[in-house]
């Protein structure tokens, strides 16, 4: 970890001004990604701007039944908030399936969205990585890529977006509120993370002088059956090999609305619209679930070590949909 300067931002305006003054600076909220990667020399901020004093706390229900969540709400607070547990159980479960108690106590809502990949070649400055160093190549594609993406990859990058929380946000439908020099703007969460393409170092749509100030969840589905299933090697405290978040509203066994998103297998939080479309109007039974899984993985492109992830993701989808049906009131 190389030396850096430190400043506390006491207003959104100062936070943005700090960033503009020093383009190589970085915001810190929870610190769980930034400090981890700074110690590895993967991130090299010249200045760290502490935004914890900004008024970005709080969870409030809006008039249109949406839920607005401050960027600095920690993962732990969010998972235990009554409105989340009641109306967005998928979000609570996804968060609690991620990381550890300690990390969830530190990590924030916006920080979780902004977290970086766990690709070991990205985390090793001696390896070739187009995401870390554009144009340097990708050591993962021909290397040990068991943990890498089967969806959304490119010839430049196959790094997985590691978040569990984002799987739920993708399924629920979420709007991000960003703050920049021109004030606030909104962006659909579905448009926020970018596919790697030929520019894997460009991970999201946040401007250099912007920060996420809040996220707003779409109105909850009611009645709702929901499941988050995370498959991994050890039983806890591990990133997903494959995870599936599913929400179903049922009417007499028939699927009214369906939401499905995947984690651990894709380069960004992965909503499965085609699979959802196949489910709507069908009887909530294994045949439909299997077809949905087929559709979700139709474009999968496994690498040398991770073909099993396609199987695993299919299984996660089918079981998550079944569990969502079983959990439906």
């Amino acid at each position: 970890m190389k030396p850096f300067a430190f400043s506390r931002a006491d207003s959104l305006e100062t936070a943005v001004e700090y960033r503009q003054a020093e383009p190589n600076s970085a915001f810190v909220a929870g610190g769980t990604t930034l400090l981890d990667l700074t110690k590895l020399d993967v991130m090299r901020p010249s200045r760290v701007i502490d935004i914890n004093a900004l008024p970005l706390e709080g969870i409030e229900r809006l008039g249109d039944d949406r839920l607005r969540i401050g960027a600095l709400v920690t993962n732990a607070e969010l998972a235990r908030h009554p409105a989340v547990r009641e109306d967005y159980p998928l979000l609570a479960r996804a968060i609690l399936a991620g990381a550890s108690t300690q990390v969830r106590n530190m990590a924030t809502t916006a920080g979780n969205i902004m977290q970086r990949t766990r690709c070991p070649y990205f985390r090793d400055v001696a390896a070739a990585c187009n995401k870390r160093q554009p144009g340097s190549g990708c050591d993962a594609i021909g290397g040990i890529n068991r943990m890498h993406a089967v969806l959304g990859g490119s010839e430049a990058c196959v790094a997985v977006h590691p978040s569990d929380m984002c799987v739920a946000l993708a399924a629920i439908g979420t709007t991000l509120t960003l703050h920049g020099p021109q004030g606030e703007r909104e962006i659909d969460f579905a448009d926020f993370h970018r596919l790697p393409g030929t520019t894997p170092h460009l991970e999201h749509m946040l401007g250099d002088d912007e920060l996420i100030v809040a996220i707003t969840l779409d109105p909850p589905l009611r009645p709702l059956g929901t499941a988050y299933l995370k498959l991994r090697d050890r039983a806890s405290y591990e990133f997903a090999l494959a995870s599936a978040g599913a929400m179903l509203s049922l009417d007499d066994g028939m699927i009214g609305e369906a939401r499905l998103a995947l984690g651990g297998v894709a380069t960004r939080p992965w909503r499965c619209h085609e699979a959802e479309a196949l489910l709507v109007g069908r009887r909530a039974e294994e045949a439909a679930f299997t077809q949905a899984a087929d559709a979700a993985l139709a474009e999968a492109q496994p690498l040398s070590h991770n073909a099993f992830k396609v199987v695993l993701a299919r299984q996660a989808i089918v079981r998550a949909l079944r569990d969502a049906r079983e959990g439906h009131p």
Binding site: R8, G30, G31, T32, L35, K39, D50, Q102, V103, M106
Partner: peptide, 28 residues
């Protein structure tokens, strides 16, 4: 030193956190 083992767990305002992933300057 990377939040992966928990040996550094302390309480900050009553919550368990990894002291290895926190700047002292953030603890004002």
């Amino acid at each position: 030193d990377h939040g992966q083992c928990g040996a550094c767990t302390v309480h900050v305002d009553g919550r368990a956190v990894n002291a290895c992933l926190r700047l002292a300057a953030m603890c004002e």
